[in-house]
């Protein structure tokens, strides 16, 4: 018997006493905090992101370019990576400020290698959804966010979130996500507590996270 068939046979024997049918428990209960208002949700999101020592600013649509540029300058970035689907207006001011803004391709039009990404200071992306109760942004790596490596290897991530993308609690986000896409949930900068439980920001992921909320 193959390992597969043997394991399945063992498991069928082990659960022979079970009398219910799969799915009989009914729909998964949605247990979520409820929001008083969209504004309350946004305010909470800003608070919870700040708690992670990520920086967060709120601005109007026409100010996004300036806020992105300010964050990049604060982080002393020289080279900035931009996924192909990003709104070009978001990085216009950074370009004006003299930063080198580049797409995810080398001279021959191939995606950048991991080593090349390692030489880039910062990345600017959009997001798929954000969660207020936990201060989380979720990327589904659509063209305005880029493939997963882009938001991982550079040391500084600037993420632009539209106000209507901020949901109140975790189940609201899960309901919106497409499981067929790769998903990355980001709550503050990378951190470890492995050394005497001191939280240290930034082990392997971006050590600086800037969130720009647009409403």
């Amino acid at each position: 018997m193959s390992s597969r068939d043997e394991i399945l046979a063992r498991l069928r024997a082990a659960t022979a006493d079970v009398t219910t049918r799969p799915g009989e428990r009914g729909p998964v209960p949605i247990i979520a905090a409820t929001s008083e208002s969209a504004q309350a949700t946004l305010t909470l999101f800003v608070e919870t992101v700040t708690d992670y020592r990520a920086s967060v600013v709120r601005c109007r649509p026409e100010q996004v370019g300036a806020e992105v540029a300010a964050a990049l300058v604060r982080g002393r970035a020289h080279t900035v990576l931009v996924p192909s689907g990003l709104d070009p207006a978001w990085v216009e001011r950074a370009r004006d400020a003299g930063l080198r803004v580049r797409p995810d391709e080398d001279d021959e039009g191939r995606p950048l290698s991991a080593d090349q990404l390692d030489g880039i200071d910062a990345v600017v992306t959009a997001a798929r959804v954000a969660v207020a109760t936990t201060g989380t942004i979720v990327l589904d790596h659509a063209p305005d966010q880029g493939r997963r490596a882009l938001t991982l290897v550079p040391d500084h991530h600037v993420c632009v979130v539209r106000a209507e993308q901020v949901v109140h609690d975790v189940p609201d986000a899960v309901a919106l996500l497409d499981p067929a896409r790769p998903l990355t949930w980001i709550s503050g900068p990378s951190a470890t507590s492995d050394i005497e439980l001191n939280r240290v920001e930034g082990v392997h992921g971006p050590r600086t996270l800037d969130v720009v909320v647009v409403d």
């Binding site: 990355t184 949930w185 709550s187 992921g205």
Partner: peptide, 8 residues
């Protein structure tokens, strides 16, 4: 409230 990274 949430760990820094969750990958799916």
């Amino acid at each position: 409230r949430m760990n820094p990274y969750t990958s799916m």
